[in-house]
Design a binder for these strands. Structure first.
Lengths: 196, 196
DNA sequence: AAGGGTCTTGGACACTTGACCTACTCCACG
DNA sequence: CGTGGAGTAGGTCAAGTGTCCAAGACCCTT
């Protein structure tokens, strides 16, 4: 096995953990399974991280970051407010449909993090970064189309996140794409009513 | 230990599993822990259920049922459409605030069920019963106030469930009650715009 | 070339998990 | 009665878990 600096190994381990967890679920993501994914021995995991929990902390951070980046990248700036908002939702939806297991993983990580006091702050952090990402998108739209929002953007962001989370979670269960898109469009229309 | 008919034992075990899972999380809900909760030996679990998974199936069913009942019970019928819808959301919210860990458990069960093919139908079933419950509430409101819905009630139910799920999940992380209620009220207003 | 950090290995550790089994106790019924 | 099945206790089992360690391999510096 090639010799790799510890910092790089750490990043590799985080990526491997994400891949395993996405593919096989958080419960199946053991230290052995992660090491196996990289073809290295288990000892390295604890050479690079104090504990498995510390690794998972890093996983949450990396995912939260990547999620916001992916969401913003998926959004094609349209001309007017209406198409911008629509594109934002549909771009997000494209991401969900392309990576359903990754979405499921975020919910697994959230519930895991919420289950004990030490990791709870991570769940808050994850949510804060999601909200910040949505606020940024709202600001983008505002800047690009010259519109204003009737409601405070942080409240708007919270509502948007609730919608996307709720629709995604529901779709993961019933896989009814048509209804999910229909819901998103209806919510997009309602959001538009708050632009001026 | 008192002697109890098997059917009753089964029900006891399901309740014990729910209590443990609610309090300590699904991951901590082992057969030993469940048996300990009732003060009985582990063997009984496998005497009453073919496997732990079969027990969890039952847990999902019982919870899905109880959830809908609790949600409907929490709703105080008001006079006009506006107060009815508002009460429905606030009644639901009262339930969430009173039993946050129980809500968390439903998300844990959903993600767990979605992670393998055999249990996936359970997640669909759980969701279907939630949607049916919400549709029933919408019908109640319609009947009590004589209003009609501009949009198909199944679509309305999906949107409502998305909202409540999304807001709940977010609140579990940040515990920002004021913002959560504000979101629910905003959504309630938008729902009202669809009543005629 | 020698030395000394830096990485890697494979195995061992103490423990928990779900599953299963056998010997037993109890009680209703014939 | 007493007998048979329903219910119980407690233990065993193999497999799996996170964690840790001693030993060696590697590579950069001197």
């Amino acid at each position: 096995m090639p010799r790799v600096p510890a910092d790089e190994r750490r990043a590799d381990l985080v990526q491997a953990a994400i891949q395993v967890a996405t593919r096989e679920g958080l419960a199946a993501t053991t230290t052995r399974r992660i090491a196996q994914e990289l073809g290295i021995s288990v000892g390295i995991v604890h050479y690079c991280f104090r504990s498995k929990e510390e690794l998972l902390h890093e996983v949450i951070r990396v995912i939260a970051e990547a999620q916001v980046v992916a969401a913003r990248a998926a959004i094609v700036p349209g001309g007017d407010v209406a198409t911008s908002v629509r594109n934002a939702f549909l771009g997000f939806w494209q991401l969900v449909e392309a990576t359903p297991q990754a979405q499921l993983l975020t919910y697994e990580l959230t519930t895991w993090a919420l289950r004990n006091a030490e990791t709870e702050p991570l769940a808050k952090e994850q949510r804060a970064s999601q909200l910040a990402g949505i606020e940024a998108i709202l600001a983008d739209i505002s800047a690009a189309t010259g519109c204003e929002w009737k409601v405070a953007t942080d409240q708007l962001a919270r509502m948007t996140l609730a919608i996307t989370d709720g629709v995604t979670l529901g779709w993961l269960a019933d896989r009814d794409t048509a209804s999910a898109v229909q819901s998103l469009e209806a919510f997009a229309d309602q959001l538009l009513a708050l632009a001026v």
